[in-house]
Structures are given as structure tokens and as C-alpha cells.
Design a protein around this nucleic acid. Structure first.
Length: 223
DNA sequence: GCGACAG
DNA sequence: ATCTTGTCGC
């Protein structure tokens, strides 16, 4: 699939900050895609792994059919690590190789589940937002741990969730994707709303704690 | 100053 | 992220 717009990649944190502030306004946080959308035929998952010495980044993308979640396409891209890991600036480290991997896909996904937060970010522009704005594909942030925000106690059953609140604003949801396991953190990235995001994430998580997209991308990235 | 801190 | 086995429990 073709990757259209991009931007110069920052060399340091302050340059990255300016880019976040600028791109943040381009994020679309409403549904421009129906909630139960028959046109969503392919859902993708992305993940990035690093060499032991942290010099090489390897991005992996898998495309699964939706809602049956069968593997339809996959791609990987390796390159030198160009940005350090700094909380709040993860996307500058992961987006470049992910865009390279996405460019190799034969099938263009209708939805992208990202391994990290989206709106649930101190400046409201996490990895999922960044990937969404640059690809214009609807994106969802699915993180394994909390970064910002507070929430009320969560029910134990699969499907229960609580809003994640930061500075008085709902930035995402804490979702029990499987009964009795640690919850996952869902936030919108681009072009959909939170309720829709939670719905898709649960549909992509039929058996394990993490969505099939994330699990398979994770597996592919660590090969 | 102290603690927290996606992957 | 990454270094890493067995083990408890549904």
C-alpha cells in the first residue's frame, strides 16, 4: 500500500515536540466509519522489536480478515534505530520502520491496531494517533500497561470496561479482554470514536488477552 | 524535591 | 523493548 504524507524526522526531543503539537490538530477523533461496518474486511496489527544492542529496529505488520481473523498478508521491515526510547515520544522510534513495512503490503487494511497508546498520551498524540495521521487509516491504540490517566475498579468479566480519565478528560478505556486477566488499555488513534474502538478490539480478541493482530505481529517481529 | 514513566 | 523456566490454576 502507498504511504502518502510524511514529515522530516526529528533529531531530538524538542524537535519531536514541535511535530507532535503540529500533527495533533490533524487527528480525527470522530467516527467517519460506521460502527458495525461491513466494509471493514481487513484489520492489521503492527509491532516493533529491537536487537539486543538496540541498533536495529524490526517492524512487522500482519493483515487479518475481519471478523474471521485469518492471516491474509504480512510484511516486515528492518532499519537502524533512529531515536531513543523516551516516554511520550515512542512514535518517533517506531513509526519509521512501521511505515516501511506497511508500504510492502499487498492488501490495504481498513483498520490498524497499534501496540501502544493513542489519545491516552500526555499531549494526546501517542503512537496510534501518529500512525493514523500519516497513513490516514483508522487506528486504535492497544497498550498492555497504563501510561497516563486514572480509572475506577474494573469488573472481572471479559468485556467490562471503565473510562480512563486524565485531567478531567476521557482519554481511553481500561478493558477486560479476557475474564480474570490483567486489563488492556484502549484509546482512539484516528478516524473513530472510543466506543467503536472498544468494539473492534473485543472482536479482534476472541481468545487471549491481546488482539490476534497484536499477537501475530508480535510473533512476526520477533523472528 | 519525589515518584512515574507506552515500547 | 530485552534478558528467561517452571509452575499454578481455570
Amino acid at each position: 500500500m502507498p504511504i502518502h504524507r510524511s514529515h522530516p524526522w526529528p533529531q531530538n526531543e524538542s524537535e519531536a515536540l514541535l511535530i507532535q503539537e503540529k500533527l495533533r490538530s490533524q487527528t480525527i477523533s470522530t467516527l467517519d466509519m460506521p460502527s458495525v461496518n461491513p466494509s471493514v474486511k481487513y484489520v492489521a496489527g503492527v509491532d516493533v522489536s529491537y536487537s539486543a544492542d538496540d541498533t536495529i529496529a524490526k517492524a512487522a505488520v500482519v493483515v487479518l480478515s475481519f471478523p474471521d481473523l485469518q492471516l491474509c498478508d504480512q510484511a516486515i521491515a528492518c532499519g537502524p534505530t533512529t531515536f531513543p526510547y523516551i516516554p511520550g515520544f515512542l512514535s518517533f522510534r517506531e513509526v519509521p520502520p512501521v511505515l516501511d513495512a506497511l508500504a510492502k503490503l499487498t492488501i490495504c487494511p481498513d483498520l490498524l491496531l497499534c501496540d501502544g497508546h493513542g489519545l491516552a498520551h500526555p499531549r494526546r498524540f501517542g503512537l496510534a494517533c501518529h500512525l493514523g495521521v500519516l497513513t490516514n487509516i483508522p487506528t486504535i491504540g492497544v497498550a498492555k500497561s497504563r501510561y497516563i490517566g486514572q480509572h475506577d475498579p474494573l469488573g472481572e468479566k471479559r468485556g467490562s470496561w471503565q473510562p480512563l480519565i486524565d485531567q478531567g478528560e476521557i482519554v481511553g478505556a481500561v478493558v477486560r479482554s479476557r475474564t480474570g486477566v490483567q486489563p488492556i488499555y484502549v484509546s482512539i488513534g484516528h478516524r473513530l470514536d472510543l466506543a467503536t474502538a472498544i468494539d473492534y478490539v473485543l472482536q479482534c480478541t476472541p481468545k487471549y488477552r491481546l488482539p490476534e493482530t497484536t499477537r501475530q505481529a508480535d510473533q512476526l517481529a520477533s523472528m
